[in-house]
Amino acid sequence: MMIIRAKFFSQIRRPVVLALAGLALAATTAGAQPAKKGPSPAQGAKAGAEIVEADVSSRAIAVTSGFTGKEIIVFGSIYNGRQGAADAGYYDVVVVVEGIPAPLVLRRKSNVAGLWMNTTSVNFDLVPSFYALSSTAPLDKIAAPEVFEDQGIGFDHIRITPRHAVPEAEMKLYREALIRLKKNDKVYVQNQSGVTFIGRSLFRSSVMLPANIPVGLLQARVYLFRKGALLSTYTAQLQLEREGLERWLHDLAKKNSFLYGLLAILTAVAAGLLASEVTRRRPS
């Protein structure tokens, strides 16, 4: 048993380290981009330029056994905004809510001797586990693809890199399949009119977090555009956490799987005994 336990612990350490590394990476890139691309808040303030600020309606969301998804509101306002009216269309706003990047395998089936089976696969180290994109207008009306490519905005530009090099033509197919599958799972979603201005500088976007959203940290990134140029960005965070029985069972299963197994057996035996008692007492 000791061997099994020891083996198991070395097993969970790696995904945790990977997830942490992913977090750190996401945090540094998100922090570095505004300084490199759009004007930094400090510079912008001096010039009287626009700065976007935002937050989310709930910063902590509990995932319990009854979790069926949750709608969050990402809202924000533009400091030094010059828009005359809410419907003037002076600015464009893009909101991206992204889940912790996680490693995954993408497999492709092909026909071998009449049977459809997995034959090729590509391993990915960091693929956003959730990606919800909403904007004031279709992306191609907001800015040039190069701008979005720089920021990793949109399904065509999400940063998805394979662990080992894959030929470009192949990679295109895999990338399309990955995004198609994630869209089918409703964890990659896009709403091209999801961001609405409700005042001259105030905007909001509602994002539906589906029931199957991977638990963990979510980043809500807000991008402010004017005539194709990125003016300012802002990042807010929210945390999805397991709670209650859901959390207890999940923790036990992952951290103390031997006890979890015993609990499963006890539950089964107790249920079986209870059932036989109930039916035995019933007058026949």
Binding site: Q11, R14, A102, P103, L104, V105, L106, R107, R108, K109, S110, N111, G114, L115, W116, N118, N123, F124, Y174, A177, L178, R180, L181, K182, N184
Partner: peptide, 19 residues
Amino acid sequence: DLVVQPAELYSISPLLRGQ
């Protein structure tokens, strides 16, 4: 399901240890 071409040839699964 084994012999008829599936509508979706690709599938995603979590990366397990040892891959």
